[in-house]
Design a protein around this nucleic acid. Structure first.
Lengths: 205, 205
DNA sequence: TATTACATACAAACATGTATGTATGTAAAT
DNA sequence: ATTTACATACATACATGTTTGTATGTAATA
């Protein structure tokens, strides 16, 4: 039994998180035992319990590693006025998220676990509430961006930015769910970016 | 131990399904033991195993009781030409599903269990595949209905019926997910019908 | 030396599926 | 109409296994 440096301990911790992700993906969170995670990580259960209080904490760590960077990215894409028009900024925000899903297997798998492989009961219901709260933030940012588009005369039809933002949010929420469910990546994934473009074009004058 | 008539046995079976739904909703499918379902149903585990092979079969029964009628309803609303125009038929199909969710606690709870309280692993992955297959059928029916709307000159913009059908499907998929997640029914549920109307209006000339 | 980052051992609880027991329904024979 | 044989619809008991969390041990770091 070899004690480690702090850096080594952190590597062990990350290795445990990676292992959890692998096993959660196959077995689902509830049916995964801590022994299985330990085996996958090449440590013992004692090590897991040193780093994490329980399975839920492990799942939190897994989730935070992926979702926090995504949320940080959101403000950059939507609210920072650059050379692109507001509608293109919304499109870039949506397609950027799809690109991250395409590029990062970690992100992809974490989404899949959160959407299809865990049950929102007990202490985990709070996570659902957080997700809904994050959605409210996103909707607000999209609404603000649609307002900018309206001011610039870019919007078709006579719907309000709030209505458009809600419609877009529901569209994108559905897209994410269907994207994740397209496990073999043949039915929806190849078309996701085109669908986003279509969606934005539907509201462009 | 009193043996029952066939009719009584069927009542026992339905009572077990109802009990399972109640317990699954609170504890999640995986964390629910068959003993808990038995207690809730007022029978013993032996009775459950008489009627169902295992927990997965019980979950199938629960699901089928709700989803089969919904799927049957689909063709009626979309494909049967009545006095209403095709866009209104799409709107009625979408809002009709929301109305069923509002009116039937059983439907509502089953959706919640299927979306938030179970993990799609092992034998249950097949259910996910079935759901995706059902979605394809819905998309096709919506596309056909959008085509009818196009022939009648009701569509705004220059998108194809296939593109519109896909956008609508993703919107509605997102709406269902967010609707189900609005557990306290205060954030999205009161506005769902209006959002559907908005969505359809966005494509009406 | 004290603390850390683990590994190993212990204790307890729970859950599943199956075997067996039992009372009653049902159809057929008398 | 009564009796019998069988099947049914459960309840109870059995057998087995797994999993969790915690206590304790241990080598290395700080």
């Amino acid at each position: 039994m070899v004690r480690k440096t702090k850096e080594d301990a952190e590597l062990t911790r990350q290795r445990i998180i990676d292992a959890a992700r692998d096993v959660f993906l196959v077995r689902g969170v509830s049916r995964t035992s801590m022994e299985q995670v330990a085996t996958q990580a090449g440590v013992t259960r004692g090590a897991i319990y040193w780093h994490f209080n329980n399975k839920t904490d492990l799942l939190y760590a897994l989730r935070d590693r992926v979702f926090l960077p995504l949320i940080d990215r959101m403000d950059d894409t939507l609210l920072v006025e650059g050379s692109t028009d507001p509608l293109t900024r919304i499109e870039n925000f949506l397609s950027g998220t799809i690109k991250v899903l395409n590029d990062s297997i970690e992100t992809r798998q974490t989404y899949e676990i959160m959407m299809l492989k865990c049950e929102y009961v007990d202490e985990f219901e709070a996570v659902l509430r957080q997700m809904i709260s994050t959605c409210s933030g996103i909707i607000e940012n999209v609404r603000l961006t649609y307002e900018r588009a309206q001011v610039k005369g870019l919007l078709a039809g006579d719907l309000t930015p709030a209505e458009l933002a809600m419609d877009t949010h529901l569209f994108f929420s559905g897209l994410l769910h269907m994207w994740v469910k397209d496990i073999e990546g043949t039915q929806l994934r190849p078309h996701a970016l085109a669908m986003i473009k279509t969606h934005i074009n539907l509201r462009r004058k």
